[in-house]
Amino acid sequence: MPAGVRTLLLRPEAPALIFLVLLAIVLAFTAEGFLDPANLEDNIARVVVLGVIALGVNQVVLSGEIDISVGSMLGLCAFAVGAVGESQGGLILPLLAGIGTGVVAGSVNGALVTLGRIPSIIVTLGMLYALRGMILVITGGRWITNIPSDTRALGLQSVAGVSVPVIILVVLLVVVELISRNSTWGRNVFAVGGNRRAARFAGLSAGRTRFLAFVLVGVLTGIAAAIYVGRAGGVQTNAGQGLELQVVAAVVVGGTSISGGRGSSVAAITGAVLIGVILNGLVLLDVPAEWQSAMLGALILLAISTDALRRRLLREQPS
């Protein structure tokens, strides 16, 4: 096998990519309308919010932690975007409000995990409910509906025939992957997640590295919220409910190891697109929407089992 192909196959996202291609081929033959350019773009467009957040959660998982608070966090950020948009209009202010809200929520997560030394699953499970509670408390159950169209720009417009959300997703993928591969923090995330003890020995601050990963989730969730508001045109109190499951599914299905240290941003996006294609396929094949959650669960279990088996097969191969 040529060295290039071997390197490619060793990449964490390789199995998910191959599966995605095979699935696309099957759908191309079985599901009418799958290959329509509009439908193909819809596959990606419907998972932009999911994908943008998955880019952040992917870094958290790489560092050996988890964040399942993003469903409620998106809801809260969306309310910030919507409320500011409603009263002030424009794009920048609402976007900043969303990002700011996300950063605060992400910092709370990060601080509780790193300074409070509480396991991230408990912190973010608690935050999942606490943030949802905050949405209900702040809004009093009110929905935001009349959002001006300039606030919705990120979800509505398109450039040269490609919708803005898709462009944002690609740009963020490139940016996060560059940070991940070419910055000290990006590499420290892999080190801390891959071997905490050795990281300590090398003098890395595991706390700071993980804290920043949680903050990144906040930033990206804020951006995702602006896209969400743009696409949906309004915000309900249950905005983003259940999204955390899809995000974790995207990350682990894409090939990032749930035990940390192995994976890539490309993997997270591959996982997100795979979920988009599956959901799209379900619709095209007339499977009732109620089965979506079951499919998602099955997919998570399949992905983590494959990862476990791969680890077992790759057990200690000396060079």
Partner: peptide, 11 residues
């Protein structure tokens, strides 16, 4: 040089 043979396995 530590006694524990600790490396970062995926790097």
């Amino acid at each position: 040089i530590p006694q524990e043979l600790d490396l970062f396995p995926e790097l």
